[in-house]
């Protein structure tokens, strides 16, 4: 059988989103489902009573500010990439990475505060949920940081520019998503004490 393939030009696409970007959105959907189910579990469990009420650590407000701020930098890096300003892209992504890392440290400090106010992972589920939700978000944020570093590496290799935006676009989407996810969790935790 002759299997010498002559792969010709593909027929025109029936849909215009870049497949990888689309896959990225689907991935975000799965993450949304994880957190949606955990927060619904939180509500269901809270409704059953025996629920310890405590103050959220104040530092979470600071952390929320940091992550919002990092999203602004991310957007700036993205716009810079669109304008082929590689230097600013590097600065922007670097700043986002540093802010992201600071956020993580802040989250760990928040856990420290919780421990100091005698809220442990083991104990009433109201406390355990806070640890699980913040911890799981932080794990995703670590993933985001790794993604940032990959984009930073491509930028240094001059692979990120106005003609090659897919990677930084996906990174931006994911980072904004992580920021949005955190705000959702924070507001949720504030509302459902």
């Amino acid at each position: 059988m002759n299997t010498q393939l002559h792969i010709m030009e593909e027929p025109k696409k029936t849909f215009t989103i870049h497949p990888k970007k689309f896959a990225m959105w689907l991935f975000i959907t799965t993450v949304v489902m994880i957190f949606a189910s955990l927060t619904s579990a939180y509500i269901v469990r809270q409704a059953e009573g025996n629920w310890l009420i405590f103050e959220l650590p104040k530092i979470l407000w600071v952390n929320s500010g940091i992550i919002l701020f990092s999203s602004i930098f991310m957007h700036w890096a993205y716009v810079s990439a669109k304008n082929d300003n590689t230097k600013n892209v590097k600065i922007g992504i670097g700043a986002v990475a540093i802010l992201g890392f600071t956020f993580l440290i802040g989250q760990v400090m928040a856990w420290g505060d919780l421990v100091n106010s005698n809220i442990f992972l083991v104990g009433n589920p109201s406390g355990s949920f806070v640890y699980v939700l913040t911890g799981l978000h932080s794990i995703h944020l670590v993933g985001g940081l790794i993604f940032l570093l990959i984009v930073l590496k491509s930028t240094i290799k001059l692979k990120v520019h106005s003609k090659n935006m897919a990677q930084i676009e996906m990174c931006t989407t994911f980072w904004h998503f992580l920021g949005g996810l955190w705000l959702y969790l924070f507001i949720f935790l504030l509302l459902y004490r």
């Binding site: 489902m33 469990r45 992972l121 083991v122």
Partner: peptide, 25 residues
């Protein structure tokens, strides 16, 4: 699958916490 399997992951995650770290979900 995309919408439901993550939920099983959450359920399993909380179960892992209960089993291994002593939480009470």
């Amino acid at each position: 699958g995309l919408l439901s399997f993550p939920v099983l992951l959450s359920a399993a995650l909380l179960l892992i916490f209960d089993r291994s770290f002593g939480t009470s979900f």
